[in-house]
Design a protein around this nucleic acid. Structure first.
Lengths: 192, 192
DNA sequence: CAATTAACTGGACTACAGTCCGTTTTCGTG
DNA sequence: CACGAAAACGGACTGTAGTCCAGTTAATTG
């Protein structure tokens, strides 16, 4: 019934070429310095192809991050506690914030570009929805009565790549991680 | 000794023209839709002049916001408590978050452009420094031992115009304001 | 294996941000 | 008022993001 719409061979070939070219240029020159023109040229592909496939730079970078991101999501959905299921909501929130911060520190440049390439990009990407949903469920469980949906957004705000980049100019990574933990703790405690 | 370097008459005239033109176009077409070319044309001024004076769109918008921003800063520095001096640090933080949120809701479009025109713009503007410093001082007083500097950044993160814009697509302003209050409360409570 | 068709391709094209630099204007000084 | 330096002007110029569409190519079908 549902025909499986397979990816055409040339399309697959070009996708691979583009991702390899992008990875190479980003490694050599830094993510921000590389233009889409340059990626297309290095990949031996027209601009139209590049944009048709990835939408914009944010999409291209997101494709490069896909594996790492999926791995973190797997650990959340079915990995060992406290990040995975089994621990208390409070512990899982703390574990998420810590793990996400690690992920962020490791891929700060890519994430910053992916989140800021177009206005509001961060909040439209599928993965933001994932992180938000995960936190909202845990917060609702840990703090019944609170506006878990909003608080999840608020807790993700200081995890924005651009925010962390700016803060890292004054505070080192350890302070940021510790501060985030304090913030998570504060939010998880049911205050009078 | 220090010669007072006055602003030249033509410079003043053009500055006024540009700000009037920008205000008009922003009002008519929305901030995002107006190009710098259009502002220069409407003002009857060359692009070079526009960029020399305001740097980029972020700077132009910041100039338009200047009055409102200064007013809020005045109220913080010397207005009545709890926003101004005299109230407890916790109350002043709460009052700041509420007042800043109002300011944000009132000028969301301008602020979003001003914060996102160039990468990291938000954190370079002088006013960010002001808000941060204010919060850091209050937090240090209310939570001795905590990393007030980092926590001030973290509390400003969900007050980013782009963040609020994105969240407003799901939560109305009242929920955002209430959520911010909860967040501020959580941060001010000295937990075990 | 030829015909069909849907998807993919690539580069010319538009619009915008931001720079550069030769020219013009202002304003203090003699 | 004339002059010269400093400041400001403005528009041509460069580089980039993103669009568009006429031509090409891969899969499918009889």
């Amino acid at each position: 019934m549902a025909d499986p719409p397979r990816e055409r061979a040339d399309a697959a070939r070009n996708r691979r070429r583009v991702l390899e070219a992008a990875a190479k240029l980003f490694r050599e020159q830094g993510v921000e310095a590389v233009s889409m023109d340059a990626v297309a040229a290095e990949a031996g592909v027209g601009k139209g192809t590049l944009f048709r496939r990835f939408g914009d730079k944010s999409g291209l970078v997101a494709a490069l991050l896909d594996d790492k991101e999926r791995e973190l999501q797997e650990r959340i959905l079915s990995g060992p506690p406290p990040l995975g299921p089994g621990a208390s909501p409070a512990d899982r929130v703390r574990a998420f914030v810590a793990s996400y911060a690690d992920y962020l520190f490791d891929h700060l440049d890519l994430l910053r570009v992916s989140e800021t390439a177009s206005p509001g990009a961060r909040y439209r990407i599928g993965s933001y929805r994932f992180w938000h949903r995960h936190l909202a469920i845990l917060l609702a469980e840990a703090r019944p009565g609170a506006d878990a949906d909003y608080l999840a957004h608020a807790l993700l705000a200081p995890l924005a790549a651009e925010h962390v980049t700016a803060v890292l100019r004054e505070c080192d990574a350890a302070r940021v991680a510790a501060g985030l933990a304090v913030l998570a703790d504060a939010l998880m405690s049911n205050r009078p």
